[in-house]
């Protein structure tokens, strides 16, 4: 269970997250959608206590993240593809994280095997492709066998096999009763993976609903998303201009 209440974060004059409230419940995959720059990553960082909110608060399993006794055993997070030192092996990276939360060493090889990195575990992670880095990030998130998973754009850089693997992994984690909160800008992918959706634009909540409900009145989930976010898009290409110039 993740609860965000009136979360607000400003960077100078810019309001990145604006009085955002929503719940993410266990047992289903909840997609987190929004245009570029809408505040998805900032929201996730606020939930994880990495950034300090200017107002409001976020709770995970009823606690603020900083109060957790064994954070990695309660919350697993993937925030960016390359949150590891390029000179360190995948195994050492995970071993260090395991040690911080008294997670048995055997679990490191278990998650490496789970994400398909067992054969590359001893190599310096700086040599990894984007997809391999993403897999290492997923391994780190799964390390503590947590009840809550927070993943920022996990399919970035993955090949089609990897995309399907993530999709099935997230669904099975949710089916085990875990809370799975996953951001993406790939709406078609979310349509296949998520049951519930939290949609934001310009840091504000636009919808907290199910995939079925949102797409009900439109031809596709994508159409529904564009209608919902039409007023909240910051960075937009202009096809009309390109065509005339």
């Amino acid at each position: 269970m993740i609860e965000a209440r009136d979360l607000t974060k400003r960077y100078g004059p810019t309001v990145a997250v604006d009085a955002l409230s929503f719940d993410v419940r266990p047992g289903s995959v909840t997609g987190f959608l929004g245009p570029n720059g809408s505040g998805k990553s900032t929201t996730m960082r606020l939930i994880l206590g990495l950034d300090r909110p200017d107002a409001g608060q976020a709770r995970v399993g009823g606690h603020r993240y900083r109060e957790l006794r064994w954070p990695l055993r309660e919350v697993g997070a993937l925030l960016e593809a390359r949150a590891f030192h390029p000179g360190r092996s995948a195994r050492s990276h995970l071993a260090a994280l395991a040690a911080s939360n008294a997670i048995p060493r055997a679990r490191v090889d278990e998650v490496l095997d789970m994400v398909g990195l067992a054969s590359a575990a001893g190599r310096r992670a700086g040599k990894f492709s984007l997809g391999m880095g993403q897999r290492l990030g997923v391994a780190a998130a799964l390390l503590g066998d947590p009840a809550v998973l927070i993943l920022d754009e996990p399919v970035n850089g993955l090949d089609p096999e990897g995309v399907r693997w993530i999709r099935n992994l997230l669904k099975s984690l949710a089916a085990q009763g875990r809370t799975v909160f996953v951001s993406s800008h790939l709406i078609s992918e979310m349509a296949l993976t998520a049951e519930r959706l939290v949609v934001i634009g310009r840091g504000r909540l636009l919808a907290d609903t199910t995939v079925a409900e949102l797409s009900a009145g439109s031809a596709s989930l994508e159409d529904a998303f564009f209608r919902l976010t039409s007023d909240a898009v910051e960075y937009q290409g202009n096809t009309a201009k390109e065509a005339t110039s």
Partner: peptide
């Protein structure tokens, strides 16, 4: 500083929030 350059700091602070 190596933690900031590589982004490892986020993983570190998520593991040890104090």
């Amino acid at each position: 500083t190596g933690e900031y350059t590589s982004g490892t700091i986020r993983a570190t602070l998520a593991a040890i929030p104090r």
